[in-house]
Amino acid sequence: MSNEEKRIWGIHTQDDRLFLRDKIIAIGWNAMGDLSDIDANRDAFKEKYTQVYPDAKKGNIATGAGMLYRFCHEIQIGDYVIFPSKSNREVNIGIVEGDYVYDPNQIEYVQTRKVKWLKHLPRMAFSQGALYEIGSALTLFSVKNYADEFLGALDKNFNKNYSSDSEDESVGATADDIVESTRDFILKELSRQLKGYDLESFVADLLRAMGYRTTVSAKGGDSGIDITAYKDELPPRILVQVKSTDSDIRESTIQSLKGAMREGDYGLFVTLSNYTKNAQKYLDSTPIIRGINGTELVDLILKYYKDLSDKYRKMIPLKQVYIPVPREE
């Protein structure tokens, strides 16, 4: 049974008992009312969502309306459902048996569908990669990458246990996915919240966390220098230019930084994007100027995150966790 033949949905809830006792899957947004009263297209769901939640951010509108539309119209009878229950740490696999039903008697989860639960398995029965996929931050989502593993669990001879087998080969990919997702999140938040002068202040704070004394130039200055930094009271002086533009940095832009430097100075160029091929060649041939692109900037943020100011740690909220990685040979 392949992923192309059967659609598989993942779903989360705060009420495990409701799902298991009443044999349903359900989502909230009770203020939306009966979803079947909304025209069966995504634009209509977005319009209704905007009316009901006028303070919702643009991204939340698209995500929330999209999940509601999929729950009402895209899920079909016969589709499979993967539901990880937190109360007993099991993975519950079921099949959709009913069309969408609005149940106003429910306190929170008013958007419902009947489900027949086929199997309840411990989380240890699945690979780390499969568990990561159903750990999505979304309430409702498609299961694709590890669909065959979940469907295979329905086989009567299924007796997998990743706690007793040889090393889980999905661990490395899972760890990489988590790291890359974190990097993407940081870069997106920087691009979204810190434009122009705001990014200059952030870079100055990051340099401070790294042990430098920094001074941010006055806004509107024509020197082309955004930050001046010193490691201590003595030279060398480090002149910093910061660009929040989405386009790659050209060689001429870096040359303007070098033109502002005096003998003995060092230069630092920071961008959220990257450098053109010629600009990178110029940096390689000019060792007194260091270029930092978006990826390298994220590396520094992760390394010095705990020493950033409260303002920026709240802007980019991260939690330190331990994740499994492959054993070294």
Rank of each mutant, 00 (worst) to 15 (best):
V242F: 08
I61E: 06
L121I: 07
R42M: 13
N159A: 15
R21T: 14
K57P: 07
A130E: 06
K119V: 10
L234R: 14
K6I: 12
E4M: 04
L118Q: 10
I93C: 05
T253V: 14
L154N: 09
R250W: 02
L187M: 08
P54S: 07
G129D: 05
D222H: 11
Q280L: 13
P326R: 07
R70C: 03
P317Y: 02
V270G: 04
A260M: 00
M315C: 11
S164H: 11
Y102A: 06
H12A: 08
L20I: 15
G152P: 08
D246P: 15
Y146C: 09
K258N: 09
I323Y: 13
S2W: 07
A153C: 05
N145L: 03
D15E: 08
I11C: 06
Y304Q: 12
I82S: 01
E189Y: 02
Y322G: 10
S36A: 14
I107L: 14
D168S: 00
G152C: 10
Y100G: 05
I227P: 02
N92Y: 10
T112S: 08
L151E: 02
G129I: 04
E200D: 05
M261S: 09
S163E: 12
S244M: 03
G10Q: 01
N88M: 13
S87V: 12
E251L: 12
F126S: 01
I8L: 12
A26P: 08
I61V: 15
K46N: 15
T245S: 14
L138D: 10
I25M: 09
S136Y: 05
K314W: 01
N105R: 13
M210L: 04
G267L: 08
D55L: 10
P236T: 11
I75R: 01
K314M: 12
P84N: 08
E263C: 04
I186D: 02
D205W: 08
D37S: 14
W9T: 01
K58W: 07
D246G: 09
I301T: 06
P236A: 11
I178S: 00
S163I: 09
Y53V: 07
T50I: 11
L138R: 14
E200C: 11
D232P: 05
E167W: 03
I178L: 11
I227Y: 04
K188H: 12
D177Y: 08
V216I: 15
Y212P: 00
Q76P: 00
L199C: 05
D222L: 13
W29A: 10
I27P: 00
V101F: 11
W117I: 05
P104L: 10
E5Y: 07
G135T: 01
G220H: 00
I77M: 07
W117H: 09
D43V: 10
Q255Y: 00
P84R: 09
S87A: 15
I186P: 03
F185H: 11
D55A: 12
D176M: 13
Y109E: 05
G224Q: 01
G33S: 08
L318W: 01
T228I: 15
T50Q: 15
L138E: 05
Y162L: 01
F150G: 02
K48F: 00
V240N: 03
G10V: 05
G66L: 08
A218V: 09
V298M: 00
L272W: 02
S170N: 03
A153E: 00
R250T: 13
K116M: 12
S223L: 12
S252F: 12
N41F: 13
D148M: 04
G64Q: 07
R208D: 09
T245Y: 08
